Amino acid sequence: RYTFRTRGPEQMKRVVEWARRQNLSYRVEVHGDEYIIHAE
């Protein structure tokens, strides 16, 4: 189980790509310009 905090969509997309390659399920929360990605 991982939690990532990123700023801006570019970093968020990179984390999502990584999670997909690992076959993890993930969800993204948006708080202003901060993205929180939960993957497991």
Score class of each variant (00 low, 15 high):
residue 1 R to A: 10
residue 1 R to S: 12
residue 1 R to T: 12
residue 1 R to F: 09
residue 1 R to C: 15
residue 1 R to L: 08
residue 2 Y to P: 02
residue 2 Y to M: 08
residue 2 Y to S: 03
residue 2 Y to F: 11
residue 2 Y to R: 04
residue 2 Y to E: 02
residue 2 Y to N: 02
residue 2 Y to D: 01
residue 3 T to H: 06
residue 3 T to A: 04
residue 3 T to F: 08
residue 3 T to N: 03
residue 3 T to Y: 09
residue 3 T to K: 07
residue 4 F to M: 03
residue 4 F to C: 07
residue 4 F to E: 00
residue 4 F to S: 00
residue 4 F to H: 02
residue 4 F to W: 13
residue 4 F to I: 12
residue 5 R to A: 05
residue 5 R to P: 02
residue 5 R to F: 10
residue 5 R to L: 08
residue 5 R to E: 03
residue 5 R to W: 10
residue 5 R to N: 05
residue 6 T to G: 06
residue 6 T to R: 04
residue 6 T to W: 02
residue 6 T to M: 07
residue 6 T to H: 02
residue 6 T to N: 01
residue 6 T to Y: 03
residue 6 T to I: 14
residue 6 T to C: 15
residue 7 R to C: 09
residue 7 R to M: 08
residue 7 R to E: 07
residue 7 R to G: 04
residue 7 R to K: 14
residue 7 R to L: 08
residue 8 G to R: 14
residue 8 G to I: 15
residue 8 G to Q: 15
residue 8 G to A: 14
residue 9 P to D: 13
residue 9 P to T: 14
residue 9 P to A: 14
residue 9 P to E: 15
residue 9 P to Q: 13
residue 9 P to Y: 15
residue 9 P to G: 10
residue 10 E to P: 06
residue 10 E to G: 07
residue 10 E to H: 08
residue 10 E to M: 09
residue 10 E to S: 08
residue 11 Q to D: 10
residue 11 Q to N: 13
residue 11 Q to M: 13
residue 11 Q to I: 10
residue 11 Q to K: 07
residue 12 M to N: 01
residue 12 M to A: 10
residue 12 M to K: 03
residue 12 M to F: 11
residue 12 M to W: 06
residue 13 K to E: 12
residue 13 K to R: 13
residue 13 K to H: 12
residue 13 K to A: 11
residue 13 K to D: 06
residue 13 K to G: 06
residue 14 R to V: 12
residue 14 R to Y: 08
residue 14 R to G: 04
residue 14 R to E: 10
residue 14 R to L: 13
residue 14 R to P: 02
residue 14 R to K: 13
residue 15 V to W: 09
residue 15 V to Y: 10
residue 15 V to H: 03
residue 15 V to F: 12
residue 16 V to L: 12
residue 16 V to D: 02
residue 16 V to G: 01
residue 16 V to Q: 03
residue 17 E to R: 09
residue 17 E to G: 05
residue 17 E to L: 09
residue 17 E to F: 05
residue 17 E to Q: 10
residue 17 E to S: 07
residue 17 E to A: 11
residue 18 W to D: 01
residue 18 W to I: 02
residue 18 W to N: 01
residue 18 W to L: 02
residue 18 W to M: 02
residue 19 A to V: 14
residue 19 A to L: 15
residue 19 A to Q: 00
residue 19 A to Y: 04
residue 19 A to H: 02
residue 19 A to M: 11
residue 20 R to E: 13
residue 20 R to I: 15
residue 20 R to P: 00
residue 20 R to W: 05
residue 21 R to A: 13
residue 21 R to M: 11
residue 21 R to L: 12
residue 21 R to T: 11
residue 21 R to E: 11
residue 21 R to N: 10
residue 22 Q to V: 06
residue 22 Q to K: 11
residue 22 Q to E: 09
residue 22 Q to H: 15
residue 22 Q to Y: 13
residue 22 Q to W: 13
residue 22 Q to A: 10
residue 22 Q to D: 02
residue 23 N to H: 11
residue 23 N to T: 03
residue 23 N to Q: 10
residue 23 N to P: 01
residue 23 N to F: 07
residue 23 N to A: 06
residue 23 N to Y: 05
residue 24 L to R: 03
residue 24 L to I: 05
residue 24 L to P: 01
residue 24 L to F: 10
residue 24 L to K: 03
residue 24 L to A: 02
residue 25 S to G: 05
residue 25 S to E: 09
residue 25 S to M: 11
residue 25 S to N: 12
residue 25 S to V: 14
residue 25 S to C: 06
residue 25 S to W: 14
residue 25 S to D: 10
residue 26 Y to M: 04
residue 26 Y to S: 03
residue 26 Y to A: 04
residue 26 Y to Q: 00
residue 26 Y to I: 14
residue 26 Y to T: 09
residue 27 R to L: 09
residue 27 R to S: 12
residue 27 R to N: 08
residue 27 R to H: 12
residue 28 V to Q: 01
residue 28 V to T: 03
residue 28 V to K: 00
residue 29 E to C: 08
residue 29 E to F: 12
residue 29 E to P: 00
residue 29 E to D: 06
residue 29 E to R: 04
residue 29 E to W: 10
residue 29 E to G: 02
residue 29 E to H: 08
residue 30 V to D: 04
residue 30 V to Y: 10
residue 30 V to T: 09
residue 30 V to M: 12
residue 30 V to K: 14
residue 30 V to R: 14
residue 30 V to S: 07
residue 30 V to N: 07
residue 30 V to G: 04
residue 31 H to C: 12
residue 31 H to L: 12
residue 31 H to K: 10
residue 31 H to V: 13
residue 31 H to W: 11
residue 31 H to I: 14
residue 31 H to R: 11
residue 32 G to I: 04
residue 32 G to N: 08
residue 32 G to D: 09
residue 32 G to H: 05
residue 33 D to R: 07
residue 33 D to P: 05
residue 33 D to Q: 08
residue 33 D to A: 08
residue 33 D to F: 07
residue 33 D to E: 11
residue 33 D to H: 08
residue 33 D to I: 05
residue 34 E to Q: 09
residue 34 E to I: 14
residue 34 E to N: 07
residue 34 E to G: 10
residue 34 E to H: 11
residue 34 E to V: 13
residue 35 Y to S: 03
residue 35 Y to M: 05
residue 36 I to K: 02
residue 36 I to H: 04
residue 36 I to Y: 05
residue 36 I to G: 00
residue 36 I to D: 01
residue 36 I to F: 07
residue 36 I to R: 03
residue 36 I to E: 03
residue 37 I to T: 00
residue 37 I to M: 03
residue 37 I to N: 00
residue 38 H to F: 14
residue 38 H to N: 05
residue 38 H to M: 09
residue 39 A to F: 14
residue 39 A to L: 15
residue 39 A to M: 14
residue 39 A to I: 15
residue 40 E to P: 04
residue 40 E to W: 15
residue 40 E to H: 13
residue 40 E to D: 10
residue 40 E to L: 09
residue 40 E to V: 11
residue 40 E to S: 12
residue 40 E to Q: 12
residue 40 E to N: 10
residue 40 E to Y: 15
